[in-house]
Design a protein around this nucleic acid. Structure first.
Length: 632
RNA sequence: GCCCACGUAGCUCAGGCGGUAGAGCAUUUCCUUGGUAAGGAAAAGGUCCCCGGUUCGAAUCCGGGCGUGGGCUCCA
C-alpha cells in the first residue's frame, strides 16, 4: 500500500517524550483551519516559506544564529551567495552557493570561530523596511541573486523587510535577537547538499547545519543526547546484537535478517497475524511478482514507475514485474468470487514483500530498504461501512502501538496534490475521502496535522509518524481510503436489492513495514527488548562445570514451556557469563550452583539487578506469564 | 541520483608525508572450576573496498567505480 506519486515536504511534529533539553513550546496547540472543523497542529519548523515569523525565543535565537552564520561565511568567502537560513528542529541551517568551490566539514571550525568573533563584537540586528526597488538594488549590488529571486517570487507589495547585521544584509521578516552578543551557545554540525528551493532541477547549494541553544548547558545536553542516540542507533545495535547484516554482495537496501533478528520478527508477525485474525481479517499469501499488465491496470506502472524495478521480459513475450505494492493481488483475490453485501466488509491481509527501487542516497539501515514486508491489508466495504472500517483500522494501529511500546507518535492527514496528473479520480471523491479520514480521527479525539500533497495517487491517507533515536520522523502505519482502484478493476458486490454495486477500499498497514518497525523497536528499547520479543529470554549460567548437567536440565524444562533459553556451560567464571548475558540485554539470567541444584531452584537475576532464588517451577510460571501477557 | 565525509583482521580501531601492517575484543587449543559485568597462556586470522594510472616499488599519491553514514529528494 501507500504508494505516493506526489512531492511533499516532511515536517517534524510535536515531541512528547523523548528526553531532550528544554526546547521551548514546540506547539501542541491546535487552531482552526480556515474552512472546515479540521485541527491543524502548529508547525514547529516552518519551512522557510520564508522566514516565518515566530515569537518562540528559541526559534528566534536559532534564526538569528543562522544570520550570524551567513554573515561569517560572507566575510570569509565574499563570493558566496546565500539562499535561505531558517531555524529547524534543534538548530538551524543556511544554504550557500560557493560557486563551484567545495566546502567540507573541515571548513567549519574556521567559520565557527568567525561567528564567535562577530558574536563578541556585539553587532545589533537592525530591522529595516525598504521599498521593493531599493531592496532589489541592494541585493543585486551584492550579487545576491537568490535573494533577488525570492523578492521577485515571494514578496508581495512594495515593502520589503530586511535585517542588517553590520555589513550583512538579509531578506527576512524577523524577529531577531537584539544583538549578536545574545548568541552564545551554538555549534556548526555538518554540511550537506540541498537543492535551491527543494527542486532537483535547480542548482544544488551547500547547506551548513548548526545547533543553537540559550545556554551552554543546554548545548552540552544536546550534544550528550546525540551521543546517547548514537548508542541506540539500530544500525549499530543491529550489528552488535547480531540482529541483521548488510553485505555488498547481496546489495544495498537488502538487509539479511540474522537468526536473532528473525526470531524477533517471527514473534512480531505471530502477534500481528493472531490479532488480525481475531479482528476478522483473512490472511492470505500472494506472490511477489505479477504480470506487468496488472500494474498497468492499477495505475502503478504509469504513476509509480519511478520506484518500480524494470520488468522481467522473457522470450515468449511474458513480462513480469516485482510488485511495489500488493493491493492488486488482493483485488484479484476479491474477484475470485462474486461477492455479496453479506461478505462485506471483507478484510484481506498479508505480511508480504513489496519491492521498491529507492534511490541509493535514501537507503538507511533497516529504515529504508528496497524490499520490505508490509503488515498490509485491504478492506473492501460499502460506503456506509467506510467510517467504521477506518476507525477500526486506527484502533488496531493504536492497539499495536500500545503493546509494542510505540508510545509517542503523531498523525498526519495527507491530502491530494494540486498537480492534476498526479492523482486519479474526481475532486469530489477526494473531498469525501479526506473528510472521512478527518472525521474518523476527530471522532476518536485525535489531533493531527496536514500534509498537503503527501497522499497516495489513488486516495488520501492518515500516516502515523514515529521518531527514531535521533528524533527523525518516519511514517510507520497508514490508513488510506481508495475509490479509484475499485473503479479501475471494476469491483462490485451484489447488494441487498440484487443490483451490482461498487465497494470502497481501505488500504492499511497497521504495524507498518516489518523492517521499519524493527528498526524502531531496536531504538525504542535500545536492544533491551521485552521478554516476549527477546531472542534469548533466559541464559542459564552454571557457577562451575560440575553443575552443567543441572543447568541443562533447567534449560530443557524452560524449552519445554517454549521459552527461548541458552545454557552457558563455558568454563568461564560466573562474572563472565553474567557480563556476556548483560551485554546481550537478556531479560533473565538463571544462576545455578551448589545452592540451587540440590533444591531444584534457580537464582534469577533480571535486568533490574534484582536477585531472587526460587523453585524452577515458580520461575517457569513467572516467565511464561510474562511472555503470554507480552509484558513490557 | 546529487552534495560532504568515511571504507585497514569477524567487530572496534591504531598506523602509514611510497619500501607489502598492529592492538583489544571475538574465534580455536590448553591451563583454570571461579556465586552476580571481562581468570591466564598460546595459536590462527588481512588482495589495507574494487579497477586503472604514476613509480624501481602503491595499503599510502592521482583518477574512476562500489559501499556505508549524514543531508537534499522521497518514503513503509
Amino acid at each position: 500500500m501507500s504508494s505516493s506519486a506526489s512531492p511533499g515536504k516532511g515536517t517534524p511534529a510535536l515531541s512528547t517524550r523523548i528526553p531532550m533539553p528544554a526546547n521551548g513550546p514546540l506547539s501542541t496547540s491546535t487552531r482552526e483551519g480556515q474552512s472546515t472543523r479540521v485541527h491543524i497542529l502548529d508547525d514547529p519548523m516552518p519551512d522557510y516559506g520564508e522566514h516565518e515569523a515566530t515569537d518562540d525565543p528559541l526559534q528566534v535565537l536559532r534564526h538569528s544564529t543562522a544570520h550570524l552564520l551567513a554573515a561569517a561565511v560572507v566575510e570569509l568567502h565574499p563570493e558566496a551567495k546565500y539562499g535561505i537560513g531558517p531555524a529547524v528542529q534543534d538548530g538551524f541551517y543556511y544554504d550557500f552557493d560557493f560557486g563551484g568551490k567545495s566546502i567540507s566539514e573541515a571548513d567549519l571550525p574556521a567559520i565557527e570561530s568567525r561567528m564567535r568573533r562577530l558574536a563578541q563584537a556585539d553587532i545589533p540586528f537592525v530591522h529595516e523596511v525598504l521599498p521593493r526597488k531599493q531592496a532589489i538594488e541592494e541585493f543585486a549590488k551584492r550579487d545576491q541573486i537568490y535573494k533577488v529571486e525570492l523578492i521577485h517570487d515571494k514578496v508581495e507589495g512594495d515593502e520589503v523587510s530586511v535585517y542588517r547585521t553590520g555589513e550583512f544584509l538579509d531578506l527576512c521578516r524577523g524577529p531577531h535577537v537584539r544583538s549578536t552578543k545574545d548568541l552564545k551557545a551554538f555549534k556548526l554540525m555538518r554540511v550537506a547538499g540541498a537543492y535551491w528551493r527543494g527542486d532537483e532541477k535547480k542548482p544544488q547549494l551547500t547547506r551548513i547545519y548548526g545547533t543553537a541553544w540559550q545556554t551552554q548547558r543546554e548545548l552540552d545536553d544536546y550534544l550528550k543526547f546525540l551521543e546517547e542516540a548514537e548508542k541506540r542507533d539500530h544500525k549499530k545495535l543491529g550489528k552488535d546484537l547480531k540482529l541483521f547484516a548488510v553485505d555488498d554482495r547481496v546489495g544495498p537496501g537488502l538487509p539479511l535478517w540474522l537468526p536473532d533478528g528473525a526470531t524477533i520478527r517471527r514473534e512480531l508477525e505471530r502477534f500481528i497475524v493472531d490479532e488480525e485474525l481475531s479482528r476478522g481479517y483473512l490472511h492470505v499469501r500472494t506472490p511477489d511478482v505479477a504480470r506487468l499488465d496488472l500494474f498497468r491496470q492499477s495505475g502503478h506502472a504509469q504513476l509509480y514507475s519511478e520506484y518500480m524495478y524494470p520488468p522481467m521480459k522473457f522470450e515468449d513475450g511474458e513480462e513480469l514485474e516485482l510488485r511495489p505494492v500488493n493491493c492488486p493481488h488482493h483485488i484479484v483475490i476479491y474477484q475470485t468470487e462474486l461477492r455479496s453485501y453479506r461478505d462485506l466488509p471483507l478484510r484481506i491481509a498479508e505480511i508480504g514483500n513489496n519491492w521498491r527501487y529507492e534511490r541509493s542516497g535514501t537507503l538507511a539501515g533497516m529504515n529504508r530498504v528496497r524490499a520490505f514486508a508490509l503488515n498490509d491489508a485491504h478492506i473492501f466495504c460499502t460506503p456506509d461501512q467506510l467510517m467504521d472500517e477506518v476507525k477500526g483500522a486506527i484502533d488496531l494501529a493504536l492497539y499495536f502501538s500500545k503493546v509494542l511500546g510505540i508510545d509517542e507518535f503523531s498523525y498526519q492527514l495527507s491530502t491530494r496534490d494540486d498537480v492534476k496528473d498526479k492523482w486519479l479520480g474526481t475532486e469530489e471523491q477526494w473531498e469525501d475521502a479526506q473528510a472521512a479520514l478527518a472525521e474518523a480521527l476527530e471522532s476518536m479525539g485525535q489531533t493531527y496535522k496536514r500534509g498537503v500533497g503527501d497522499a497516495a495517487f489513488y486516495g488520501p491517507k492518515i500516516d502515523f509518524q514515529v521518531r527514531d533515536a535521533h528524533r527523525r520522523e518516519f511514517t510507520n502505519s497508514t490508513v488510506q481510503v481508495d475509490f479509484q482502484l475499485p473503479q479501475r478493476f471494476d469491483l462490485e458486490y451484489v447488494a441487498e436489492d440484487g443490483t451490482r454495486k461498487r465497494p470502497v477500499m481501505v488500504h492499511r498497514g497497521a504495524a507498518g513495514a516489518m523492517e521499519r518497525l524493527f528498526s524502531y523497536l531496536i531504538e525504542r528499547y535500545a536492544g533491551a527488548f521485552p521478554t516476549w520479543l527477546h531472542p534469548t529470554q533466559v541464559v542459564v549460567a552454571s557457577t562451575k562445570d560440575e553443575f552443567n548437567d543441572y543447568a541443562q536440565e533447567v534449560g530443557a524444562r524452560l524449552r519445554a514451556s517454549r521459552v527461548r533459553v541458552q545454557v552457558d556451560t563455558r568454563s568461564e567464571r560466573l562474572n563472565r557469563k553474567i557480563r556476556d548475558a548483560r551485554l546481550k540485554k537478556v531479560p533473565f539470567i538463571a544462576v545455578v550452583g551448589e545452592k540451587e541444584a540440590p533444591a531444584g531452584h534457580v537464582n534469577v537475576n533480571d535486568r533490574t539487578d534484582k536477585q531472587v532464588e526460587m523453585p524452577l517451577e515458580a520461575f517457569v510460571s513467572m516467565i511464561s506469564a510474562e511472555i503470554a501477557e507480552r509484558r513490557r
